[in-house]
Design a protein around this nucleic acid. Structure first.
Length: 748
RNA sequence: GCGCGGUUAGCUCAGUUGGUAGAGCAACCCGUUUACACCGGGAAGGUCGUAAGUUCAAGUCUUACACCGCGCACCA
């Protein structure tokens, strides 16, 4: 091959992602094109833009402001940036709005650990001081995570960055709370909640983890009955003994009948209750109930209007009702109680191999102690009397989902969501932590009635006239993030809300379909009357190379920043996207990322070859293709047809693979190799040079959403040449070039 | 118990409306005076979890089962 090799300084070196990426990102950011209201001319040209006037909106799932980038973020940012860049190139006014979440409980837990290390504790700390400390901590870390998001090439509009504690967001959240209160959809109720005795807060049902474990099952003599229990420490106050009404073994006992019997701390009077929820098969078919500390028991007690009594305090210690055991922690008390029962000959037998599920705190894995507490709840399935159709929050969501107004990708999440919504329970939105949005409410000191008080002017209880105090609880983080779409866009008056709501795609982890997605649908409909997004795209987990869930304790956490350093962001992005179908988890393997580093390099080298060959090409005097080249030109057009369709169907995993394959094995291996011969023999050389050039230009465009950095860098080199050579076009960023599907202009 | 995924080449995964199985990586052979060894060419590799059914035709549709993963509800 005797092709001359005088090429640009820049192109002489191998592709260096590290040097390029920072510079390119700055270029993008300074261009202002991340803002959907800034566009290059062709976007605002009706004739030139088939998508003139259309908008496209994605909201970034607000990242935990206190955290650091993990592999999951890598996937989120890659997918969303691909969508954003694609739509931008298609001529949509494209908004990708970045956000940060204060992540209430999550952050508080992190901060508590920090306090612990310093020998401090949040308990006993002044609330305001603690809040301020966590705020400082969070704000300091938030710039960190924003920088990391940038490193991934995210083309989001930083001028619109929102933080969940911004005044305007909090104000919106308060308005929603007020509306819910007015519509009688939120109430401060005495209900049984899941309580963590370490974190001293209640949780929603979703923050609880089920763990299987083996315990003793104790068969205790309870008067004429034998009851089975795994938790003898709760049994002090048990004065109701429950059995199934159809159980013939106990047909001689009648509902409401009282019997006297000897129990842990002396003789008591117990009442017989007949209830159909009792499983006749389990144990002896008889149980006593502890309504204060057991969800099922609570329901039975509610149904029959039975007394409820607290046995265990908020720290897991026994109350005075336990007599001699009062003040002991339940963990220690259990064996002592059994000891005593044995001495009283009240233990029938012990099954030491009882396998059952216990519920634990998802954070600390301590056993959840159900407690009856006054908490704020949102009525999820109760009719909304102030709505014309009276539909509940859940029903409204069900309706739009069933009608297909919200499209689920992958589709099976639709069913999962509907199942959940159909069996939804009231949502506990109050948390007993400092870090979060304070609940704007007053509580009566006399009757504990809770009242919404956003305006802060309630002095007396509206029910009993008693003195009131400020509620010290904060909202569940998901209550505010559930309002993210309309809150960030400035409902109701901001022009962004008018221009960009409902948003087009919500892309997030399948894991948080209930936590977040379902609640956004319900609250979005409730507040704005419209769905918050038209499509919900759910990705799976990012796992380690062996397909194991990453966790600090396992030590298999892969840091995306290290991979990006090593192989470049483009390579990392390709590795995240190729073959990764929505909803399925992805095993993150380093050799895969490495393979795409080679790809970026291949693009670089092919480009430098092409640019060298077309140096003397007069772009204003383009001749026609010969037969062979015409075929290749057609082939690329067909590819674009295909992938454009697939892009619209969110099949990025297949598009990325096709582009990889076409660029490498068609463009480089066939077309470039063929061109060498033609140029050397000077046979239709002009035709093939044009083909090389048009192919490269087009391929850079369609590759750009996937690997934005290397493509933009090459583009800038091409542009700088144009300025020197033939002035075909004003220099522009590849980022805002027109997607070639509609670009049939020959000036390419 | 109910529900949802998955089971395809050594590994990680694609496979659109049913028409004689695909990619990347790894392994194997050959080549390499220049865009690129971060390379080129070539060959190899699968009875698509099991069983039955529908069909001219099933990786793809139906049913049952097995195993793996997940979610929901649970029995004290």
């Amino acid at each position: 091959m005797q092709i001359s090799m005088k090429i640009d300084e820049k192109l002489l070196k191998p592709y260096n992602p590290k040097e390029t990426e920072e510079k390119i990102y700055k270029l993008w950011e300074e261009s202002g094109f991340f803002n959907p209201l800034n566009n290059p001319d062709w976007v605002n040209d009706k004739k030139n833009n088939p998508n003139f006037g259309k908008s496209f909106t994605i909201l970034m799932p607000p990242t935990n402001a206190n955290g650091s980038l993990h592999a999951g973020h890598g996937l989120v940012m890659t997918i969303e940036d691909i969508m954003t860049r694609y739509k931008r190139m298609r001529g949509y006014k494209t908004l990708w709005l970045p956000g940060l979440d204060h992540a209430g409980f999550e952050t508080q837990v992190v901060y508590e650990k920090k306090l612990e290390k310093e020998g401090r504790s949040r308990f006993g700390m002044d609330r305001d001081i603690l809040y301020k400390e966590i705020l400082d901590f969070t704000l300091k870390n938030s710039s960190n995570i924003n920088d990391q998001v940038k490193r991934l090439g995210s083309s989001c509009d930083w001028s619109r960055l929102k933080f969940s504690l911004d005044n305007e967001i909090v104000k919106r959240v308060y308005e929603t709370f007020k509306k819910l209160y007015k519509d009688d959809l939120v109430y401060r109720g005495e209900r049984i909640v899941s309580w963590c005795s370490k974190h001293q807060t209640s949780f929603s049902d979703l923050e609880i983890k089920d763990v299987e474990q083996i315990d003793n099952l104790y068969y205790l003599k309870y008067g004429p009955f034998v009851i089975a229990t795994s938790r003898p420490e709760t049994k002090f106050g048990d004065k109701y003994v429950v059995m199934h009404p159809k159980d013939i073994r106990y047909k001689n006992y009648t509902h409401g009948e009282k019997i006297d019997l000897e129990w842990i701390n002396g003789s008591i009077s117990a009442t017989i209750i007949k209830d159909e929820n009792i499983d006749m098969e389990f144990g002896t078919g008889v149980m006593t109930i502890t309504p204060w500390h057991d969800t099922a028991d609570f329901e039975i007690a509610e149904k029959h209007k039975l007394d409820k009594e607290q046995i265990i305090d908020e720290y897991g210690k026994l109350l005075p009702i336990a007599g001699e055991f009062a003040g002991q922690h339940i963990k220690k008390a259990r064996t002592l109680i059994i000891e005593k029962l044995k001495n009283k000959n009240l233990v029938e037998k012990i099954d030491k191999n009882y396998k059952h599920i216990v519920r634990v705190c998802y954070k600390c894995e301590n056993i959840i102690e159900p407690q009856i507490k006054k908490q704020w709840f949102i009525k999820m399935s109760a009719p909304n009397k102030s709505a014309p159709d009276g539909a509940s929050l859940a029903q409204n969501a069900i309706k739009v989902i069933e009608k297909g107004e919200i499209k689920f990708i992958p589709e099976h999440y639709k069913k999962i969501t509907l199942n959940w919504l159909n069996d939804i329970k009231d949502w506990n939105i109050s948390r007993q932590i400092v870090w979060g949005i304070p609940i704007p409410a007053k509580i009566c000191n006399t009757c504990e009635h809770g009242m919404e008080d956003v305006e802060n002017n309630i002095k007396k209880c509206e029910k009993c006239g008693g003195e009131t105090r400020q509620d010290t609880d904060t909202f569940d983080t998901w209550f505010s993030s559930g309002q993210w779409p309309f809150a960030t866009l400035g409902y109701p008056d901001n022009s962004d809300f008018k221009n960009f709501y409902p948003t087009d795609v919500m892309e997030t982890a399948g894991e948080i379909i209930f936590f977040w997605v379902s609640r956004m649908i319900m609250l979005g409909l409730y507040v704005t009357g419209e769905i918050p997004f038209k499509t919900i795209y759910l990705h799976g987990l990012v796992l380690d190379a062996k397909g194991q869930k990453m966790s600090k304790s396992k030590g298999n956490v892969i840091d995306p920043l290290i991979l990006m350093d090593k192989y470049g962001t483009d390579a990392f992005r390709m590795g995240m996207i190729v073959g990764n179908t929505p909803g399925t988890s992805l095993a993150l393997r380093e050799d895969k990322i490495k393979a795409y580093k080679h790809f970026a390099n291949k693009i670089w080298n092919a480009s430098r070859f092409v640019l060298e060959q077309i140096k003397d090409l007069d772009l204003n005097k383009l001749s026609d293709f010969d037969e062979e080249d015409k075929k290749s030109d057609e082939e690329l057009k067909n590819l674009i047809q295909e992938i454009t369709k697939e892009m619209d169907e969110y099949k990025f995993y297949i598009v990325a693979e096709k582009l990889y394959h076409y660029f490498w094995h068609t463009f480089a291996d066939i077309i470039i190799e063929r061109s060498k011969k033609k140029i050397l023999e000077n046979k239709n050389a002009n035709s093939v040079k044009i083909l090389l050039y048009t192919h490269l230009i087009t391929l850079l465009k369609i590759l750009h959403p996937f690997i934005p950095f290397v493509t933009e860098e090459i583009w800038s080199i091409i542009n700088s040449r144009r300025k020197v050579g033939t002035p075909t076009k004003t220099s522009e960023l590849l980022m805002v070039e027109k997607w070639p599907f509609y670009a049939q202009d020959k000036t390419l």
